[in-house]
C-alpha cells in the first residue's frame, strides 16, 4: 500500500475528508499521512436512486506505535439530487494485527456482556475457548473495576448523531452499536461501529466539499466518522492490544468463510464487508497462495455471491462446499 495519488477531484475530496478525520481524531500523535488502498471510487451519474459504494482501506500510525492500523471505510452516495449530494463515509472497522483462534464473541454495548453472534453458525460450546476470550470475559466480569469496560461504556451510542447503519456489520450493531470483538479465521477483527456524521433533521454535521462532477460543481456534504469517537475507540482498542506473546497464535488460516447473506435468505451470517473480505482473502491464502492478494476491486466486483469470487480461487481443489458450511463442526 502506498500513498495514494488521487485521480480526480472527487477522489481528492474523499481522501481529504479521511485525512481530516484522522487529524481531528488524533491531532499531533498522528504520524505522517495515511496510506490508502482505494477501490471503486464512485462514478457519479445522476440516475434515480443512486447508491454508489466505495471501499477504502486506510493504513495509519499513531503515537510511535509500531503497529499499522487499518481502517476500513465504506462510502456511499445517497439522495443525489440535481446539484447536491450527500456522501457518507463510515468507519467500519479497525483490523488489528494479532491473531486469536476461531470462536466468536460479541461484546455488546450497554450492559457489557458476551453473547455468541446469532445465526453465525459459530456458537462455540462453553468449552471452546481461547486465552483472549477468557481475558475479555474476565474484563467484563469485573466491569465495575475494569478500565477496558469503562472505556467501552464511554463509547457513544444513541445520541444526536444517527448511527451510520451503512452495512449489516453485525445484526446486533443495528440496535446497539458498540465494540465487537470477533476472533476468527486466524485474525482478530475488532470492529467499532461508530456513529457517523450524517444529516440529521436536515442539518448536516459533516464536512462540505464542493466536488466537480460532469463539469458541474456540486456541493457534497461529506459525512465521516465523528472524529472523537474514532480516537476513543482507538485508544480503547490499544488498551487491549498489548497482549503477551504467548497468547498470540500462529497465523495459520482456518478456512471457514462466513456465508454471504443473499437476499431473502433471512438474517444469515452476513458479517458485513469487512469480515467477508478478510475471509475471502484468507481463503485465497489457503487455496491459492501463489496468487496475489485479493484486492478490494475484485472483492467489490463480485456479482452474485461470495461463491463466485471464491470458486475460481479454489477450482483446483475440488469441492469447496465445506468452506461455506457455517455449522461449527468439531
Amino acid at each position: 500500500m502506498n500513498q495514494y495519488e488521487p485521480k480526480d477531484a472527487l477522489e481528492a475530496a474523499t481522501l481529504g475528508a479521511y485525512n481530516q478525520m484522522l487529524k481531528e481524531a488524533f491531532g499531533e500523535s498522528l504520524e505522517g499521512p495515511a496510506e490508502y488502498e482505494l477501490v471503486n471510487l464512485p462514478r457519479v451519474t445522476l440516475t434515480k436512486g443512486i447508491s454508489i459504494h466505495q471501499w477504502v482501506l486506510q493504513k495509519f500510525r499513531v503515537g510511535g506505535i509500531n503497529t499499522d492500523l487499518y481502517a476500513l471505510h465504506q462510502g456511499m452516495t445517497q439522495g443525489m439530487r440535481n446539484d447536491k449530494g450527500i456522501y457518507w463515509l463510515s468507519h467500519l472497522g479497525t483490523i488489528l494485527d494479532f491473531s486469536v483462534p476461531r470462536g466468536f464473541v460479541l461484546v455488546r454495548g450497554g450492559n457489557l456482556e458476551i453473547t455468541p453472534l446469532r445465526n453465525s453458525g459459530h456458537q462455540p460450546g462453553t468449552s471452546v475457548s481461547s486465552p483472549m476470550l477468557a481475558q475479555y470475559i474476565e474484563e467484563i466480569r469485573n466491569a465495575k473495576f475494569s478500565k477496558f469496560a469503562s472505556l467501552a461504556n464511554q463509547l457513544p451510542r444513541k445520541n444526536k448523531y444517527q448511527m451510520s447503519g451503512l452495512n449489516a456489520l453485525t445484526l446486533e450493531s443495528e440496535v446497539n452499536p458498540a465494540l465487537h470483538v470477533i476472533p476468527r479465521h486466524g485474525k482478530t477483527i475488532v470492529t467499532v461501529n461508530f456513529l457517523s456524521y450524517i444529516p440529521n433533521n436536515k442539518k448536516t454535521k459533516g464536512y462540505q466539499i464542493p466536488i466537480p462532477i460532469d463539469g458541474k460543481d456540486r456541493k457534497h456534504e461529506v459525512g465521516t466518522t465523528y472524529p472523537p469517537n474514532l480516537a476513543d475507540a482507538y485508544h480503547m482498542i490499544r488498551s487491549i492490544q498489548d497482549i503477551p506473546e504467548f497468547m498470540k497464535t500462529s497465523n495459520e488460516v482456518v478456512a471457514e468463510v462466513p456465508q454471504w447473506s443473499d437476499k431473502g435468505k433471512g438474517q444469515g451470517a452476513d458479517m458485513g464487508g469487512l469480515s467477508s473480505f478478510l475471509a475471502l482473502e484468507l481463503a485465497r491464502q489457503v487455496y491459492d497462495p501463489d496468487r496475489g492478494p485479493l484486492t478490494f476491486a475484485e472483492y467489490a466486483a463480485r456479482q452474485a455471491s461470495l461463491n463466485t469470487v471464491i470458486q475460481p480461487l479454489a477450482n483446483n481443489y475440488g469441492d469447496i462446499a465445506h468452506i461455506f458450511d457455517t455449522k461449527h463442526k468439531q
Partner: peptide
Amino acid sequence: QSVAAFCPKCQAAFVGS
C-alpha cells in the same frame, strides 16, 4: 494451561500460566 484473572490494582484482566 493458563487462566484469566483480574488485577484490581491495574484495573485490568490478564491471562497467564
